[in-house]
């Protein structure tokens, strides 16, 4: 069994290689320690990375743990040769915004807000993995419910939905 300090280093190593979030259960299996211990060590790692000498942070989301850069350094990352992501259309962005704030949301609910049909756009977003189906709503017709995904967080550079600006509730 590894020492606690080594366990932390091991988690750091695993996180480093991952482009997508890793589930805590998978991590604890890989390390051979309990989920509880894994979570504790992860918390330590998170606070260490949060210190100002690091440009990287470890973040937790529903999908698991992952590493990403800190927002304050976005300009410098931009200045390097990053591969540019393909731009999404206005229709796609509006639909995504509605899903992000209203999730889980049905297609008719999105259409009521946008005032146009969104079937094609929604299918494209599902194909690109930005939006996923998440069960059905318990209303007549049992329409599918849609939610945003970890890929959505990746594309828009956020660590959780709380990073999005607040929507005024009154309108």
């Amino acid at each position: 069994m590894l020492l606690r300090q080594e366990l932390k280093a091991a988690i750091e190593a695993v996180l480093f290689t991952r482009a997508e979030p890793i589930d805590i259960e998978e991590l604890s299996r890989a390390l051979g320690v309990s989920v509880q211990d894994t979570r504790e060590i992860l918390q330590e790692l998170i606070s260490e990375y949060n210190r100002s000498e690091h440009g990287i942070q470890v973040v937790e989301s529903d999908a698991g743990y992952t590493m990403c850069t800190k927002p304050e350094y976005f300009r410098y990352v931009n200045n390097t040769n990053r591969s540019v992501t393909r731009r999404l259309s206005q229709a796609a962005l509006e639909t995504l915004a509605i899903v992000a704030y209203q999730q889980p949301v049905t297609r008719p609910e999105i259409e009521a807000i946008r005032g146009v049909r969104v079937e094609g756009v929604l299918n494209m977003l599902v194909d690109r993995g930005l939006v996923a189906e998440a069960g059905r709503k318990d209303v007549p017709g049992r329409p599918l419910l849609y939610v945003t995904t970890a890929e959505f967080l990746r594309i828009f550079g956020i660590t959780s939905l709380d990073d999005l600006p607040r929507k005024d509730e009154e309108a």
């Binding site: 991952r18 482009a19 997508e20 942070q57 973040v59 992952t66 590493m67 990403c68 850069t69 800190k70 927002p71 304050e72 976005f74 990352v77 931009n78 990053r82 591969s83 992501t85 731009r87 999404l88 206005q90 962005l93 509006e94 995504l96 915004a97 509605i98 992000a100 704030y101 807000i113 946008r114 005032g115 967080l153 990746r154 594309i155 828009f156 550079g157 956020i158 660590t159 999005l164 600006p165 929507k167 005024d168 309108a171």
Partner: peptide, 29 residues
């Protein structure tokens, strides 16, 4: 009013996608 709000949120998302606003970057797949 509701639609206008989402339109604004959509342009906020666009700015993030383009890296015009503070954002985080994940390791590329």
């Amino acid at each position: 009013a509701l639609y206008r709000q989402y339109k604004e949120l959509a342009s906020h998302l666009a700015a993030r996608e383009e890296g015009e606003e503070p954002r985080v970057y994940y390791r590329e797949i």
